[in-house]
Nucleic acid binder design. Structure first.
Lengths: 357, 357
DNA sequence: GACGTATCGCAACAGCGTTTGCTTACTCTT
DNA sequence: AAGAGTAAGCAAACGCTGTTGCGATACGTC
């Protein structure tokens, strides 16, 4: 696990307040001496710096350390069929600049890559620090490992496009591609380290998506398809869905909205959340996405109510429901944070036989 | 990650066929020299032995190694309100002996501990090898970390009982406690190493339970409650459930069975499985438990059909549906395998800030 | 019997965290 | 002002694990 402790120290530093070696040693369960070596490495890389000393009683005063937000940057793109939303963020995930582009028509893949590359180039020189690369978040089935948009069975010019490889070749920098909801959760977790060890994010845009983080690991699944919660059935024999089944959450939700029944729509989201909590037992649920943002209070109330009714009332099973801290930038910031996470996050756990492809 | 490679080598050896150093080096992505050291350690502990040589062409013939099944043993208990099923298994998870005990009435906790301990003592001296400890699998909310039966809000003499601590004290050996479905999945994964990297197990006993393994990690969740799939809603506004909500899978399933509609019952299980696959994207689904065993063919067909209908038809999203390999011993064997896993499995991943409680 | 080849194993080395002992820097007491 | 007490930090040695280099061993072929 090379770098696991380095990443953990960086995660603590990202919380904002300067920290002492002793506090880090306490939190990571290693000796202060090991923290010295870790901080030495991080300072050599320019990621961390000294932040003065505090004297609290007798003895040598404690040296404090803090993260250097401006030492690294990453670019994040949120791609949909109609718009392209772009941001540059610093090492802590704070936005340095933001761009917005309306896409008039469905571009063929080579043109799309050009459009994406132009946006990245426009942000390339914003802010200080080393630019690590660009992340792209988009809806629909995405293979994050391969960096390919899988698409559905329906005809689609983007289907099967190896976006990561093409864009990386075009730009000459590292590129990551992921599902929009997973990107969003990575972004939320990056800026609130330690809080979302076991969390789910529900993304309500045109469709309904989810992402899971269990034991500090983002769940991608066997085929990188985890989180397709929109076509989860909440009402057997319910409304027919284009996917061929009946009673899918996404279709029921949209039908309720279309007939003006916001209350019932909120209730469907609530049932989805409760089902999800029962299955994987997360203790934090984050809501995000364009649609939910408009009526978030009512939706959150409905979810909290359903959780209270559906779960055991013991205090040790409390589930915190919260709104995304990033608003409309949620996915673009998340895509950028995937790049940061890739470089400076906890190493992916992939042990066991035939560990790497 | 102390012992991660040792555990991985043991996992490969568990598959049965003797293996060479070169093959292990290839599979674990380490040098043959490292495999030498790892095998040396494992042989010192008696877990592995040489298994002859084979000469395949010019050069020094390859030495083969195999696991020593009789070197270790573990005891597994499957506890329900009416029965106690016990097994001893060897290091590979094979059953050495099995016992069955009817429990006439609901025993108070001290008496229950005595009953459990008696069964363990009866199996204590069966078979060769070092006895590692005992595992207990039981239905209902169980806190595997703490080894406590949480129970529901309903009055229950077992509620809050620290079974692990009490039984360990009584027996003077390590004891593990876990949810029945999680134990079952650990058992299945132990005897088929490498196959169930991303898998779900659906356990159909009196209730409906599930367990998840994602990226080779058993999912326990924030409160050790993961897998409570029985009270997942599959039909909003459906049949009233004792849990207070309507349309819970477990209640709908039982209602269908009670009115003799086996086909609809199977369909409900199928919807649960499809929902689960969509959310976490597992590529293996294992079915187990008393109830499903009687009609497994019909149930499995229904699930396969629903998966084919509900999932994209692309070949790279195939989901394998299989029946438990252990029949009625599923949970008892799984509980025993939790002990083996605890001792010789991949180390639990718990990195990051405030990593240990 | 000499030669090529593949496996095996010893020895030195490298990364990372721990242990141990000493130095530094500050406060409090006399 | 000098000394005692206390906490933080540094340096070197060590342990564990896997890697690299090189020589030893065992087999086939010419």
């Amino acid at each position: 696990m090379a770098g696991a402790h380095d990443a953990a120290v960086l995660a603590v530093a990202r919380r904002g307040d300067p920290v002492s070696r002793a506090a880090l040693a306490q939190e990571l369960q290693v000796t202060p001496q090991a923290i010295s070596k870790i901080l030495g490495r991080l300072m050599d890389r320019g990621l961390v710096e000294e932040a003065g000393t505090v004297a609290a009683g007798p003895g040598k005063p404690t040296t404090l350390y803090r993260i250097v937000p401006g030492s690294r940057r990453a670019i994040g793109l949120h791609l949909t069929r109609s718009r392209l939303h772009s941001v540059v963020v610093d090492l802590t995930g704070e936005i340095l600049e933001r761009r917005e582009l309306e896409i008039g028509r469905l571009q063929p893949v080579p043109e799309l890559i050009g459009t994406l590359a132009d946006e990245v180039r426009a942000l390339r020189d914003v802010g200080p620090g080393m630019l690590l690369g660009a992340g792209v978040g988009m809806p629909g089935p995405v293979d994050g490992e391969e960096g390919v948009y899988r698409g559905t069975s329906a005809p689609d010019p983007w289907r099967g496009a190896p976006i990561r490889r093409l864009l990386a070749a075009e730009l000459g920098m590292p590129v990551l591609l992921d599902h929009d909801s997973r990107a969003a959760l990575v972004g939320e977790a990056w800026s609130q380290p330690g809080l979302l060890r076991n969390a789910a994010l529900l993304l309500v845009e045109d469709g309904l998506g989810a992402a899971l983080c269990l034991d500090d690991q983002i769940v991608r699944g066997a085929h990188s398809h985890a989180g397709e919660v929109g076509h989860t059935v909440v009402r057997i024999d319910g409304i027919a869905c284009p996917c061929g089944r009946r009673g899918c959450a996404q279709t029921e939700y949209r039908a309720a909205l279309d007939r003006g029944d916001a209350e019932h729509a909120a209730r469907i989201l609530a049932e989805v959340v409760v089902n999800l909590v029962r299955l994987v037992d997360v203790d934090h649920v984050v809501l995000g996405g364009r649609t939910v943002h408009e009526q978030h209070e009512a939706t959150m109330d409905a979810i909290r109510e359903a959780l209270a009714a559906g779960l055991s009332d013991d205090p040790w099973v409390h589930v915190e429901v919260m709104l995304s801290t990033r608003g409309m930038d949620l996915i673009a910031v998340g895509a950028a944070c995937e790049v940061l996470e890739h470089e400076y996050g906890l190493p992916q756990v992939l042990v066991g036989p035939e560990e790497r492809g």
